[in-house]
C-alpha cells in the first residue's frame, strides 16, 4: 500500500475513533440518553454476548451470503439488460424513466406479496434484494456505454477493430467507472433491502438480530448488530473497488 493510499485509511480510522470518543463523552455527560444511544464501549463489549446468544458471526455470513447471491443475480440481470437498452435506443429511451421511477419506490413494502409467492425463506430475500440492485446497474450500464467517447470509437474503427474487440478493449474499459457506480449503488440497496426484510419477517441474518435485540430493549446489542451490517457494506464496497481497479487500473 502506497503512502497515497495509506493516508486516507489512517485519516478515516482516526475520524471514526474521534467520533466514538466524542459519543462516549456525550453519553457519559448525559448529553445523549443512554437508552437511545449506548456508549461505543458498551457496544463493543456486547459483541461476545451477542455471539454467544445469537451467533453473530454466523448471521453475519448469512446476510453477506444473501447479499452476494442477490448482487450476483442483479448483475446477471442488470448488465445484459443495460446493454440491451444501449443497443436498442428506442427501448432505452422508453424504459430508462420507468426504471428510475421504479428504483425510487420502496419495493421493500411489497414483502407480503413476495412471501406469498416464494414463502418465508431465503429466496424471498434474494429476489427482493436483487430488484433494487439490478435497476441502477442496468441504468448505469446503459449510461456508461452511451458515454463512450466517439473519438475512442473512431480510433478503434481506424485500426479496423472487430466488433468483439471494440466492445472488449474500448467500450467496456471506457464504461467501467460508470458501470461500477451503478454496481456500488445497487449493492448498497440490495443490502438495505435484505436487512430490512430480515427485520420485518424475523428471518435470516443480521436484520433478525437487530429486530430481536430491539424488541428486548438490548440497545448496545442492537447497535453491535448494526455495526456488523456496516461491516458487510464495507466488505462489498471494498471488494467491488478492487474488482474495478483490476478491470481498469486508472
Amino acid at each position: 500500500m502506497t503512502r497515497l493510499h495509506k493516508v486516507p485509511v489512517i485519516v478515516g480510522l482516526f475520524g471514526l475513533l474521534a467520533c466514538a470518543v466524542l459519543l462516549e463523552l456525550a453519553v457519559n455527560f448525559g448529553w445523549v440518553m443512554e437508552i437511545i444511544v449506548p456508549r461505543p464501549t458498551d457496544t463493543v463489549l456486547s459483541f461476545p454476548s451477542l455471539q454467544e446468544d445469537m451467533d453473530l458471526v454466523g448471521n453475519f455470513f448469512v446476510t453477506l451470503g444473501m447479499t452476494a447471491a442477490a448482487t450476483a443475480l442483479a448483475l446477471l440481470i442488470g448488465l445484459p439488460f443495460g446493454y440491451f437498452l444501449y443497443r436498442r435506443e428506442a427501448y432505452g429511451v422508453a424504459y430508462e424513466g420507468w426504471l428510475a421511477a421504479a428504483f425510487s419506490t420502496p419495493i421493500v413494502l411489497l414483502y407480503p406479496l413476495f412471501l406469498v409467492i416464494f414463502g418465508r425463506n431465503h429466496m424471498t430475500l434474494i429476489v427482493m434484494g436483487c430488484i433494487p440492485g439490478a435497476i441502477p446497474i442496468a441504468i448505469q450500464t446503459r449510461q456508461g456505454l452511451l458515454g463512450v467517447s466517439k473519438t475512442l470509437l473512431n480510433v478503434g474503427r481506424s485500426f479496423n477493430v472487430s466488433e468483439r474487440d471494440m466492445f472488449r478493449k474500448i467500450m467496456l474499459p471506457s464504461a467501467v467507472p460508470t458501470i461500477f457506480t451503478g454496481i456500488r449503488i445497487g449493492v448498497m440497496y440490495t443490502l438495505v433491502n435484505i436487512v430490512a426484510i430480515e427485520y420485518l419477517i424475523d428471518f435470516g441474518g443480521l436484520g433478525r438480530i437487530v429486530s430481536q435485540m430491539y424488541d428486548n430493549f438490548s440497545i448496545p446489542e442492537t447497535y453491535a448488530a448494526i455495526v456488523a451490517v456496516i461491516l458487510v457494506s464495507t466488505f462489498f464496497y471494498w471488494g467491488f473497488g478492487r474488482v474495478e481497479k483490476w478491470l481498469r487500473p486508472v
Binding site: F159, N160, K169
Partner: peptide, 24 residues
C-alpha cells in the same frame, strides 16, 4: 489517423496505448 480530440486510452499506459494496433 490522428485525431484532434484527446484519443489516448486513459486506462492504458503509454506503452500499451502505442502497442494497441499491434495487439489488435
Amino acid at each position: 489517423v490522428v485525431f484532434q480530440e484527446e484519443s489516448t486510452f486513459p486506462w492504458r499506459s503509454t506503452l500499451d496505448n502505442v502497442a494497441f494496433p499491434l495487439e489488435i
